[in-house]
Simulated scan of single mutants.
Amino acid sequence: MNFDLDPETAEMRDMVLRFARRELAGPSGGSGDAPAGPGGFDAGDFRRRWLLAGKQGVVGATVPGRYGGSGLDAVAAAAVLEALGEGSPDTGFAFSVAAHLFASLMPIVEFGTEEQKLGWLPALCSGERIAAHCVTEPEAGSDALNLRTRAERRDGHYVLDGEKCFTTNAPVADVFVVQAATAPGGGFFGLSTFVVDAGTPGLSVGPPYRKVGLRGSPTADVRLDGCVVPADRMLGAEGAGASVFTSSMKWERTCLFAAYLGAMRRVLDDTVRHVGEREQFGTPIGGFQAVSHRVVDMTLRLEAARLLLYRAARGLADGSQDEIAPALAKLAVSEAAVQVGLDAVQLRGALGVLDGEAETLLRDALPARIFSGTNEIQKNNVARAMGLTGRRPGRRR
């Protein structure tokens, strides 16, 4: 049992960390200095950083090399996202990279034909193009099998109609991976997945949201109104949409949350410096037991969450079908990030509620308990895998 990254992965992580500190220190989404533009988002600067990340091999990290990616496994991908989260104050940018890579590119890798992979992946890996995954709807969030977006087969194409919301990267996306119902009411086999170019007639994107956190990640509604998509733009077979979605969520729930490990590490290190320098009653506040114990608790949460996440990543890399490890990792990291953010704010006193790393971490962490399946849904998933819902668990010997 080895808890250290192998030397090659550790070296790559350090390289990405240096790159992020040098090149990706763009808008952090602080409430006082948010970039100009709709939703407080600067599309030009986002594209600039995205292209740099593409040249570094980050936005195509887990895509095989023959399609333009870096060919990393889940453990190395988690290390890359952890480095992004630590090196850049803009956790939203790392979140956008993860949504592009795990929810959009990996479905093409795992379900696309050779022609589809060669046609779409190289530009998506280089940073030339950006992808968005359209699944959530106003009436279908956690209940992802009951989508109202329809895809009707007509001759050699499909016509898509519906509305998606909370779509990460939508304002800047060139390619949309869209989940739609080809057999309404068909349950697990009623959904299908399509890859749709941004310029396709009938596809429109709303204005960027103004969000509490992750402001560096552009998010918007997507509307499909008589959008004609050729049949060869379908990923996998008709009815395979739920399998596509489930596969992408295993990647996302494991590797995406590594960005929060990095962000927590960055804020924790800054907190240790702060309590060592800030003096009250003639002594650094880090010498007060109430303060030092809180810092220890922050460290405990981070290290425990990190172990769970890399355990899940190792299982994903090894082809494990375990449903429990990714769910536990998502739960542990998201809850730890919120509490570490709260602690970091508290230890800074009044400074904690001003623009800075502590309050930004807290705001960025709040959505982590909701996206990629709410934490309540993750607990349902774990309970189901343990046999606690619908049937009795088997006796343990």
Rank of each mutant, 00 (worst) to 15 (best):
R369V: 15
V159S: 08
R369S: 13
S96K: 02
V196P: 06
G186I: 11
E335L: 13
D42I: 03
G92R: 08
L145K: 04
F288A: 08
N146H: 09
F281Q: 08
P89Y: 12
K117S: 12
R391V: 09
D197V: 05
E279Y: 07
R278E: 13
R253F: 00
P7R: 06
V291Q: 02
G68L: 11
P284Y: 09
D42R: 06
A304T: 14
N169Y: 02
V353D: 11
R314N: 01
V80H: 06
M298C: 11
L214G: 05
A25M: 11
A144F: 09
E359C: 14
L307V: 14
F102Y: 14
T389K: 10
R395A: 12
G341T: 10
A132S: 13
P107R: 13
L347M: 03
F166Q: 12
D155V: 02
L118K: 15
A290K: 07
D14S: 11
V272F: 02
G315M: 08
A123R: 15
V58D: 05
N375M: 08
S292V: 01
V97T: 03
F245I: 03
S292G: 01
E128Y: 03
S70W: 02
M249P: 00
R49D: 11
A144N: 01
R391H: 13
M234N: 05
A385V: 07
A220P: 05
D322H: 01
A99C: 14
L124R: 09
S320D: 10
F93K: 09
Y209R: 13
I285D: 10
Q56H: 10
G236F: 11
T193A: 14
Y310D: 04
V382T: 06
A181N: 01
Q116H: 07
S248F: 00
V291N: 04
E86Q: 14
A317M: 08
L388R: 13
S104Y: 08
E323V: 12
G190T: 05
T113Y: 02
T149R: 00
